[in-house]
Nucleic acid binder design. Structure first.
Lengths: 140, 140
DNA sequence: GCTTAGGTAACTGAGTTTGTTACAAATTGA
DNA sequence: TCAATTTGTAACAAACTCAGTTACCTAAGC
């Protein structure tokens, strides 16, 4: 799995956009709230735009804003947009010994096991919307 | 989460032990079937022993063998033994801006979200035993 | 055409991970 | 007691990932 923080940053960015006054913020403002570099934010925005979660605008007064209401964006969509597929553990990197029956099939079985975890998490995250997150943020 | 392959190696090693004739194999034999270095295997064995999943024995004729029947070892136990807690994505590494309401609480909310995924995967993996894996290996 | 802001390439430094060598410690059996 | 075997462990190397950074190009608005 990804142990990078792109998902965390993405949720932060999208929440900020959802809560901003006119719905738009530029990469410098977003970088400030996340406490990172504007380029890191822009790289993230590209992936989120690719997934049709937000719209970017160049030039003066530009920036990013949500492409749809926060209730229509799920954490599963956000995760996939910035981290690719759900992946809980790293693959078996080596070619296991063909001789024994374990080496012959272990990769297939592990793939199966990985898919079970992925489906389970995806289902869980598909049920949580950005609006839910924003709501929790306002409560705390 | 862990994008390392320790879990994959661990399942491979434990399956090999479960299927071996007298139930015991040394680190060199295990390294051969996994196609890696004996020291990598030994480091893994230490964690698995720590979790009471297997027993190691030094000296001539030594090696490792399962501490209990494969039906009593779950993938959840194996995962925790070698990869620590279930963790799907990396934490927010920076201290977010305190000024805005997002920065103030985003970490708490994300922690909540991460726990939901962790519990969900743990439940899934607790239901799969090493015996199930071995059975699948023999079928394929 | 000047200014602003996103798009993008290239590089750095830190951290992680597997693999490797080397050796100490324990165990067995002669 | 001694020699052989095997785990335990430290130390290091090479590859990889990742966030951060600088610099510059491109597009849009005034």
């Amino acid at each position: 799995m990804a142990q990078n923080c792109r998902f965390a940053f993405a949720v932060h960015v999208l929440s900020s956009l959802a809560l901003s006054e006119d719905g738009a913020m530029n990469s410098e403002q977003l970088a400030e709230t996340v406490n990172t570099n504007p380029v890191v934010i822009r790289r993230l925005l590209l992936d989120l735009r690719e997934a049709n979660l937000l719209i970017t605008q160049r030039g003066p007064g530009g920036g990013a804003k949500l492409a749809c209401p926060s209730s229509q964006i799920s954490l599963a969509q956000i995760f996939k947009a910035v981290s690719g597929e759900f992946q809980l553990f790293g693959e078996h990197p080596n070619e296991p010994a063909k001789g024994c029956c374990v080496g012959r099939s272990i990769k297939l079985v592990l793939e199966d096991v990985a898919q079970k975890a992925a489906r389970c998490v995806e289902k869980e995250y598909a049920a949580i919307s950005l609006a839910d997150v924003v709501h929790q943020l306002q409560e705390k």
